[in-house]
Measured scan of single mutants.
Amino acid sequence: MDALKSAGRALIRSPSLAKQSWGGGGRHRKLPENWTDTRETLLEGMLFSLKYLGMTLVEQPKGEELSAAAIKRIVATAKASGKKLQKVTLKVSPRGIILTDNLTNQLIENVSIYRISYCTADKMHDKVFAYIAQSQHNQSLECHAFLCTKRKMAQAVTLTVAQAFKVAFEFWQVSKEEKEKRDKASQEGGDVLGARQDCTPPLKSLVATGNLLDLEETAKAPLSTVSANTTNMDEVPRPQALSGSSVVWELDDGLDEAFSRLAQSRTNPQVLDTGLTAQDMHYAQCLSPVDWDKPDSSGTEQDDLFSF
Protein backbone atom coordinates (compact mmCIF):
# COMPACT_ATOMS: atom_id res chain seq x y z
CA MET A 1 0.00 0.00 0.00
CA ASP A 2 2.95 2.33 0.48
CA ALA A 3 3.59 2.47 -3.24
CA LEU A 4 -0.05 3.33 -3.89
CA LYS A 5 -0.16 6.07 -1.27
CA SER A 6 3.13 7.64 -2.30
CA ALA A 7 2.04 7.58 -5.93
CA GLY A 8 -1.19 9.35 -5.06
CA ARG A 9 0.58 11.97 -2.96
CA ALA A 10 3.16 12.61 -5.66
CA LEU A 11 0.51 13.09 -8.32
CA ILE A 12 -1.49 15.48 -6.18
CA ARG A 13 1.66 17.50 -5.49
CA SER A 14 2.77 17.73 -9.09
CA PRO A 15 0.65 16.11 -11.82
CA SER A 16 2.90 17.64 -14.49
CA LEU A 17 5.72 15.28 -13.53
CA ALA A 18 4.01 12.44 -15.33
CA LYS A 19 4.24 14.21 -18.68
CA GLN A 20 8.03 14.02 -18.81
CA SER A 21 9.67 11.74 -21.34
CA TRP A 22 12.91 9.81 -21.09
CA GLY A 23 15.15 8.55 -23.83
CA GLY A 24 14.23 11.35 -26.19
CA GLY A 25 17.70 12.69 -26.84
CA GLY A 26 17.55 15.68 -24.52
CA ARG A 27 14.07 16.92 -25.44
CA HIS A 28 12.73 16.36 -21.96
CA ARG A 29 12.47 18.80 -19.08
CA LYS A 30 14.48 18.59 -15.88
CA LEU A 31 14.25 15.10 -14.48
CA PRO A 32 13.73 13.90 -10.91
CA GLU A 33 16.91 13.10 -9.03
CA ASN A 34 16.35 9.41 -8.37
CA TRP A 35 14.41 6.36 -9.43
CA THR A 36 11.99 6.55 -6.50
CA ASP A 37 10.79 9.98 -7.56
CA THR A 38 10.17 8.89 -11.15
CA ARG A 39 8.35 5.79 -9.96
CA GLU A 40 5.82 8.04 -8.24
CA THR A 41 4.68 9.49 -11.59
CA LEU A 42 3.22 6.17 -12.71
CA LEU A 43 -0.40 7.12 -12.12
CA GLU A 44 -0.68 9.33 -15.18
CA GLY A 45 2.02 7.48 -17.08
CA MET A 46 5.75 7.52 -17.70
CA LEU A 47 6.88 8.13 -21.28
CA PHE A 48 9.81 6.44 -22.99
CA SER A 49 11.07 7.20 -26.50
CA LEU A 50 12.10 3.90 -28.08
CA LYS A 51 12.32 2.19 -31.48
CA TYR A 52 9.89 -0.58 -32.33
CA LEU A 53 11.58 -3.76 -33.51
CA GLY A 54 8.48 -5.83 -34.12
CA MET A 55 6.31 -8.65 -32.81
CA THR A 56 6.21 -12.43 -32.94
CA LEU A 57 3.85 -15.03 -31.52
CA VAL A 58 4.93 -17.19 -28.58
CA GLU A 59 3.42 -20.31 -27.03
CA GLN A 60 3.88 -19.55 -23.33
CA PRO A 61 3.02 -16.43 -21.27
CA LYS A 62 6.47 -16.09 -19.69
CA GLY A 63 10.02 -17.40 -19.54
CA GLU A 64 13.54 -16.12 -20.08
CA GLU A 65 14.48 -18.68 -22.72
CA LEU A 66 11.14 -18.23 -24.44
CA SER A 67 11.51 -14.44 -24.64
CA ALA A 68 15.16 -14.67 -25.69
CA ALA A 69 14.24 -16.90 -28.64
CA ALA A 70 11.37 -14.59 -29.59
CA ILE A 71 13.59 -11.50 -29.45
CA LYS A 72 16.20 -13.26 -31.56
CA ARG A 73 13.56 -13.90 -34.24
CA ILE A 74 12.30 -10.32 -34.09
CA VAL A 75 15.80 -8.85 -34.39
CA ALA A 76 16.68 -11.15 -37.30
CA THR A 77 13.50 -10.16 -39.14
CA ALA A 78 14.11 -6.46 -38.53
CA LYS A 79 17.69 -6.69 -39.79
CA ALA A 80 16.65 -8.66 -42.87
CA SER A 81 14.06 -6.04 -43.81
CA GLY A 82 16.72 -3.32 -43.97
CA LYS A 83 14.12 -0.70 -43.00
CA LYS A 84 14.65 2.08 -40.49
CA LEU A 85 13.04 1.35 -37.18
CA GLN A 86 9.84 3.12 -36.26
CA LYS A 87 10.31 5.69 -33.50
CA VAL A 88 7.63 5.29 -30.88
CA THR A 89 6.58 6.55 -27.47
CA LEU A 90 5.80 3.99 -24.82
CA LYS A 91 3.47 5.25 -22.09
CA VAL A 92 3.51 3.03 -19.01
CA SER A 93 0.91 3.36 -16.25
CA PRO A 94 -1.14 1.09 -13.96
CA ARG A 95 -3.69 0.97 -16.77
CA GLY A 96 -1.18 -0.66 -19.10
CA ILE A 97 1.02 0.24 -22.06
CA ILE A 98 0.05 2.72 -24.77
CA LEU A 99 2.21 2.71 -27.88
CA THR A 100 2.10 5.69 -30.27
CA ASP A 101 4.03 6.72 -33.38
CA ASN A 102 6.38 9.64 -32.69
CA LEU A 103 5.92 11.27 -36.10
CA THR A 104 2.17 10.93 -36.60
CA ASN A 105 1.13 10.58 -32.94
CA GLN A 106 -1.09 7.73 -34.14
CA LEU A 107 -2.06 5.00 -31.69
CA ILE A 108 -0.34 1.71 -32.48
CA GLU A 109 -1.27 -0.45 -29.51
CA ASN A 110 -3.13 -0.13 -26.22
CA VAL A 111 -2.43 -3.07 -23.91
CA SER A 112 -4.33 -3.40 -20.63
CA ILE A 113 -2.06 -4.13 -17.69
CA TYR A 114 -3.73 -7.45 -16.88
CA ARG A 115 -2.92 -8.78 -20.37
CA ILE A 116 0.83 -8.39 -19.76
CA SER A 117 2.35 -11.60 -18.40
CA TYR A 118 6.10 -10.95 -18.72
CA CYS A 119 8.64 -8.23 -19.49
CA THR A 120 12.41 -8.24 -19.74
CA ALA A 121 15.64 -6.54 -20.73
CA ASP A 122 17.23 -9.15 -23.00
CA LYS A 123 20.55 -10.68 -21.96
CA MET A 124 21.98 -11.20 -25.45
CA HIS A 125 20.67 -7.99 -26.99
CA ASP A 126 21.06 -5.92 -23.86
CA LYS A 127 19.53 -2.74 -25.32
CA VAL A 128 16.27 -4.51 -26.10
CA PHE A 129 13.17 -4.29 -23.92
CA ALA A 130 10.35 -6.74 -24.58
CA TYR A 131 7.03 -7.75 -23.11
CA ILE A 132 4.65 -10.66 -23.64
CA ALA A 133 0.92 -9.98 -23.67
CA GLN A 134 -2.29 -11.67 -24.70
CA SER A 135 -3.80 -10.26 -27.88
CA GLN A 136 -6.97 -8.24 -27.37
CA HIS A 137 -8.42 -9.80 -30.53
CA ASN A 138 -7.91 -13.47 -29.65
CA GLN A 139 -6.18 -15.75 -27.16
CA SER A 140 -2.77 -15.68 -28.87
CA LEU A 141 0.33 -14.52 -26.99
CA GLU A 142 2.50 -11.83 -28.57
CA CYS A 143 6.06 -10.78 -27.79
CA HIS A 144 6.76 -7.13 -28.66
CA ALA A 145 10.37 -5.88 -28.70
CA PHE A 146 11.86 -2.38 -28.62
CA LEU A 147 15.36 -1.01 -29.13
CA CYS A 148 16.49 1.35 -26.36
CA THR A 149 19.40 3.79 -26.41
CA LYS A 150 21.29 1.65 -23.91
CA ARG A 151 21.06 -1.23 -21.48
CA LYS A 152 20.18 1.10 -18.60
CA MET A 153 17.09 2.28 -20.48
CA ALA A 154 15.94 -1.27 -21.23
CA GLN A 155 16.22 -2.15 -17.54
CA ALA A 156 14.43 1.04 -16.52
CA VAL A 157 11.46 0.35 -18.81
CA THR A 158 11.28 -3.22 -17.51
CA LEU A 159 11.19 -2.06 -13.89
CA THR A 160 8.60 0.61 -14.72
CA VAL A 161 6.23 -1.93 -16.25
CA ALA A 162 6.72 -4.26 -13.27
CA GLN A 163 6.02 -1.41 -10.85
CA ALA A 164 2.92 -0.36 -12.82
CA PHE A 165 1.63 -3.92 -12.56
CA LYS A 166 2.20 -3.89 -8.80
CA VAL A 167 0.37 -0.58 -8.35
CA ALA A 168 -2.52 -1.83 -10.50
CA PHE A 169 -2.82 -4.93 -8.34
CA GLU A 170 -2.88 -2.75 -5.22
CA PHE A 171 -5.62 -0.62 -6.78
CA TRP A 172 -7.60 -3.77 -7.40
CA GLN A 173 -7.15 -4.90 -3.80
CA VAL A 174 -8.33 -1.53 -2.46
CA SER A 175 -11.30 -1.47 -4.83
CA LYS A 176 -12.26 -5.00 -3.88
CA GLU A 177 -12.14 -4.17 -0.16
CA GLU A 178 -14.17 -1.00 -0.66
CA LYS A 179 -16.80 -2.85 -2.67
CA GLU A 180 -17.09 -5.52 0.03
CA LYS A 181 -17.57 -2.80 2.67
CA ARG A 182 -20.24 -1.07 0.59
CA ASP A 183 -22.06 -4.34 -0.09
CA LYS A 184 -22.02 -5.16 3.62
CA ALA A 185 -23.24 -1.68 4.58
CA SER A 186 -25.98 -1.90 1.98
CA GLN A 187 -27.10 -5.28 3.27
CA GLU A 188 -27.12 -4.10 6.88
CA GLY A 189 -29.03 -0.98 5.88
CA GLY A 190 -31.56 -3.10 4.01
CA ASP A 191 -32.05 -5.32 7.07
CA VAL A 192 -32.68 -2.26 9.27
CA LEU A 193 -35.16 -0.87 6.77
CA GLY A 194 -36.97 -4.22 6.55
CA ALA A 195 -37.19 -4.44 10.34
CA ARG A 196 -38.70 -0.95 10.56
CA GLN A 197 -41.26 -1.83 7.92
CA ASP A 198 -42.21 -5.04 9.76
CA CYS A 199 -42.85 -3.21 13.00
CA THR A 200 -44.80 -0.32 11.41
CA PRO A 201 -48.59 -0.60 11.96
CA PRO A 202 -50.72 -0.88 8.82
CA LEU A 203 -51.86 2.47 7.43
CA LYS A 204 -55.52 1.41 7.75
CA SER A 205 -55.23 0.95 11.52
CA LEU A 206 -53.61 4.37 11.85
CA VAL A 207 -56.49 5.97 10.04
CA ALA A 208 -59.05 4.02 12.04
CA THR A 209 -57.67 5.13 15.39
CA GLY A 210 -57.08 8.68 14.26
CA ASN A 211 -53.31 8.55 14.92
CA LEU A 212 -50.93 10.67 12.80
CA LEU A 213 -47.80 9.35 11.08
CA ASP A 214 -44.67 10.57 12.86
CA LEU A 215 -42.75 12.07 9.95
CA GLU A 216 -39.97 13.26 12.25
CA GLU A 217 -39.18 9.71 13.37
CA THR A 218 -39.28 8.53 9.77
CA ALA A 219 -36.75 11.20 8.87
CA LYS A 220 -34.44 9.94 11.61
CA ALA A 221 -34.47 6.40 10.22
CA PRO A 222 -31.26 5.27 8.47
CA LEU A 223 -32.81 5.62 5.01
CA SER A 224 -30.20 8.14 3.92
CA THR A 225 -27.46 5.64 4.69
CA VAL A 226 -29.20 2.99 2.65
CA SER A 227 -29.72 5.28 -0.33
CA ALA A 228 -26.14 6.50 -0.15
CA ASN A 229 -24.91 2.95 -0.45
CA THR A 230 -27.40 1.80 -3.06
CA THR A 231 -27.60 4.80 -5.35
CA ASN A 232 -24.06 4.33 -6.64
CA MET A 233 -23.80 0.56 -6.40
CA ASP A 234 -22.96 0.35 -10.11
CA GLU A 235 -20.15 2.85 -9.75
CA VAL A 236 -16.71 1.28 -9.43
CA PRO A 237 -15.13 2.10 -6.06
CA ARG A 238 -11.96 4.17 -6.14
CA PRO A 239 -9.00 4.05 -3.78
CA GLN A 240 -9.24 6.62 -1.02
CA ALA A 241 -5.61 7.56 -1.48
CA LEU A 242 -6.55 9.28 -4.75
CA SER A 243 -9.46 11.39 -3.50
CA GLY A 244 -9.05 14.94 -4.74
CA SER A 245 -6.60 14.01 -7.49
CA SER A 246 -7.13 14.27 -11.22
CA VAL A 247 -6.84 10.53 -11.75
CA VAL A 248 -9.96 8.48 -12.36
CA TRP A 249 -9.36 4.78 -11.82
CA GLU A 250 -11.87 2.34 -13.21
CA LEU A 251 -11.60 -1.44 -13.00
CA ASP A 252 -13.18 -3.35 -15.84
CA ASP A 253 -14.45 -6.91 -15.63
CA GLY A 254 -11.40 -8.30 -17.40
CA LEU A 255 -8.98 -6.83 -14.88
CA ASP A 256 -11.10 -7.97 -11.95
CA GLU A 257 -11.27 -11.52 -13.29
CA ALA A 258 -7.56 -11.67 -14.17
CA PHE A 259 -6.35 -10.36 -10.81
CA SER A 260 -8.78 -12.63 -8.98
CA ARG A 261 -7.21 -15.62 -10.73
CA LEU A 262 -3.72 -14.37 -9.89
CA ALA A 263 -4.62 -13.90 -6.23
CA GLN A 264 -5.77 -17.53 -6.05
CA SER A 265 -2.99 -19.16 -8.06
CA ARG A 266 0.20 -17.33 -7.05
CA THR A 267 2.03 -16.68 -3.80
CA ASN A 268 3.01 -13.15 -4.89
CA PRO A 269 0.33 -12.21 -7.43
CA GLN A 270 1.29 -8.53 -7.35
CA VAL A 271 4.74 -9.26 -8.82
CA LEU A 272 5.09 -9.32 -12.60
CA ASP A 273 7.69 -11.80 -13.80
CA THR A 274 10.73 -10.16 -15.39
CA GLY A 275 14.01 -11.44 -16.75
CA LEU A 276 16.02 -9.17 -14.45
CA THR A 277 18.32 -10.57 -11.81
CA ALA A 278 18.39 -9.13 -8.29
CA GLN A 279 21.66 -7.41 -9.19
CA ASP A 280 20.12 -5.88 -12.32
CA MET A 281 17.15 -4.58 -10.36
CA HIS A 282 19.32 -3.08 -7.64
CA TYR A 283 21.52 -1.40 -10.25
CA ALA A 284 18.59 0.04 -12.18
CA GLN A 285 16.81 1.27 -9.04
CA CYS A 286 19.93 3.20 -8.04
CA LEU A 287 20.02 5.04 -11.36
CA SER A 288 18.77 8.54 -11.96
CA PRO A 289 16.82 9.04 -15.20
CA VAL A 290 19.61 11.45 -16.13
CA ASP A 291 21.92 8.42 -16.23
CA TRP A 292 19.70 6.77 -18.82
CA ASP A 293 20.75 9.35 -21.39
CA LYS A 294 24.48 9.11 -20.67
CA PRO A 295 26.49 7.21 -23.30
CA ASP A 296 27.59 3.72 -22.35
CA SER A 297 31.22 3.39 -21.36
CA SER A 298 31.64 0.76 -24.08
CA GLY A 299 31.70 3.37 -26.82
CA THR A 300 29.72 5.80 -28.93
CA GLU A 301 26.01 5.20 -29.17
CA GLN A 302 24.78 4.45 -32.68
CA ASP A 303 21.26 5.35 -33.65
CA ASP A 304 20.84 2.17 -35.66
CA LEU A 305 19.51 -1.36 -35.32
CA PHE A 306 22.80 -2.87 -36.48
CA SER A 307 24.76 -1.36 -33.59
CA PHE A 308 24.17 -4.42 -31.39
Score class of each variant (00 low, 15 high):
residue 2 D to I: 01
residue 8 G to H: 06
residue 9 R to Q: 09
residue 9 R to F: 13
residue 11 L to A: 06
residue 12 I to C: 13
residue 13 R to D: 12
residue 20 Q to T: 15
residue 21 S to L: 05
residue 22 W to L: 07
residue 23 G to M: 12
residue 25 G to V: 11
residue 25 G to F: 09
residue 27 R to G: 12
residue 28 H to E: 10
residue 29 R to F: 08
residue 32 P to Q: 06
residue 33 E to L: 14
residue 33 E to P: 14
residue 34 N to E: 10
residue 35 W to P: 11
residue 35 W to A: 09
residue 35 W to C: 12
residue 37 D to L: 10
residue 39 R to H: 14
residue 48 F to K: 00
residue 51 K to M: 01
residue 56 T to I: 09
residue 56 T to K: 01
residue 58 V to M: 15
residue 59 E to S: 15
residue 59 E to Y: 04
residue 63 G to S: 13
residue 63 G to D: 11
residue 64 E to D: 13
residue 64 E to V: 10
residue 65 E to G: 10
residue 66 L to V: 12
residue 67 S to L: 14
residue 67 S to Q: 06
residue 67 S to H: 00
residue 69 A to T: 15
residue 70 A to W: 05
residue 71 I to D: 00
residue 73 R to V: 13
residue 81 S to I: 12
residue 82 G to Q: 06
residue 83 K to N: 14
residue 84 K to S: 15
residue 84 K to T: 14
residue 86 Q to D: 05
residue 89 T to E: 10
residue 90 L to H: 00
residue 92 V to C: 10
residue 96 G to S: 13
residue 99 L to A: 15
residue 103 L to T: 08
residue 104 T to I: 10
residue 105 N to E: 11
residue 105 N to W: 03
residue 105 N to I: 02
residue 108 I to C: 06
residue 112 S to W: 13
residue 114 Y to P: 03
residue 116 I to W: 00
residue 116 I to F: 05
residue 121 A to I: 02
residue 124 M to R: 00
residue 126 D to V: 00
residue 126 D to Q: 00
residue 130 A to K: 00
residue 130 A to N: 01
residue 131 Y to A: 01
residue 131 Y to C: 00
residue 132 I to L: 03
residue 137 H to R: 15
residue 139 Q to M: 12
residue 140 S to W: 07
residue 144 H to C: 15
residue 147 L to E: 01
residue 148 C to Y: 00
residue 149 T to L: 13
residue 149 T to E: 08
residue 149 T to R: 10
residue 150 K to N: 02
residue 153 M to D: 10
residue 153 M to C: 09
residue 154 A to Y: 00
residue 156 A to Q: 15
residue 158 T to K: 05
residue 159 L to D: 04
residue 160 T to Q: 06
residue 161 V to R: 00
residue 164 A to M: 01
residue 164 A to L: 10
residue 166 K to C: 14
residue 166 K to L: 11
residue 168 A to R: 04
residue 171 F to C: 15
residue 172 W to P: 06
residue 173 Q to T: 13
residue 175 S to K: 03
residue 176 K to D: 02
residue 177 E to G: 13
residue 177 E to Q: 07
residue 179 K to G: 15
residue 182 R to M: 10
residue 185 A to N: 10
residue 186 S to Q: 07
residue 186 S to W: 03
residue 186 S to M: 07
residue 188 E to H: 04
residue 191 D to Y: 05
residue 195 A to L: 03
residue 195 A to R: 14
residue 197 Q to R: 13
residue 198 D to S: 03
residue 198 D to I: 09
residue 199 C to A: 09
residue 201 P to H: 10
residue 203 L to W: 09
residue 204 K to C: 02
residue 206 L to A: 12
residue 208 A to D: 13
residue 210 G to S: 11
residue 210 G to F: 03
residue 215 L to N: 15
residue 217 E to N: 15
residue 218 T to S: 05
residue 218 T to E: 09
residue 218 T to D: 04
residue 220 K to T: 04
residue 221 A to I: 07
residue 224 S to K: 10
residue 224 S to M: 08
residue 225 T to V: 05
residue 225 T to Q: 14
residue 225 T to N: 14
residue 225 T to H: 08
residue 228 A to D: 07
residue 228 A to E: 06
residue 229 N to P: 03
residue 229 N to G: 05
residue 229 N to I: 05
residue 230 T to E: 08
residue 232 N to R: 08
residue 234 D to C: 03
residue 236 V to I: 12
residue 238 R to Y: 07
residue 242 L to K: 13
residue 244 G to M: 05
residue 245 S to P: 01
residue 246 S to D: 11
residue 248 V to W: 06
residue 251 L to C: 10
residue 252 D to N: 12
residue 254 G to W: 03
residue 256 D to N: 15
residue 257 E to D: 08
residue 259 F to Y: 03
residue 262 L to R: 08
residue 262 L to N: 03
residue 264 Q to I: 07
residue 265 S to E: 13
residue 265 S to W: 02
residue 270 Q to P: 03
residue 271 V to W: 03
residue 271 V to L: 12
residue 273 D to T: 07
residue 274 T to S: 04
residue 275 G to M: 04
residue 276 L to F: 11
residue 276 L to H: 11
residue 276 L to M: 14
residue 277 T to P: 13
residue 279 Q to V: 06
residue 280 D to V: 08
residue 280 D to R: 06
residue 282 H to G: 08
residue 284 A to Q: 10
residue 285 Q to D: 04
residue 286 C to I: 09
residue 287 L to E: 10
residue 287 L to D: 07
residue 287 L to M: 11
residue 290 V to C: 07
residue 291 D to L: 09
residue 294 K to S: 08
residue 296 D to W: 09
residue 296 D to F: 03
residue 298 S to P: 04
residue 301 E to T: 05
residue 302 Q to C: 10
residue 305 L to R: 09
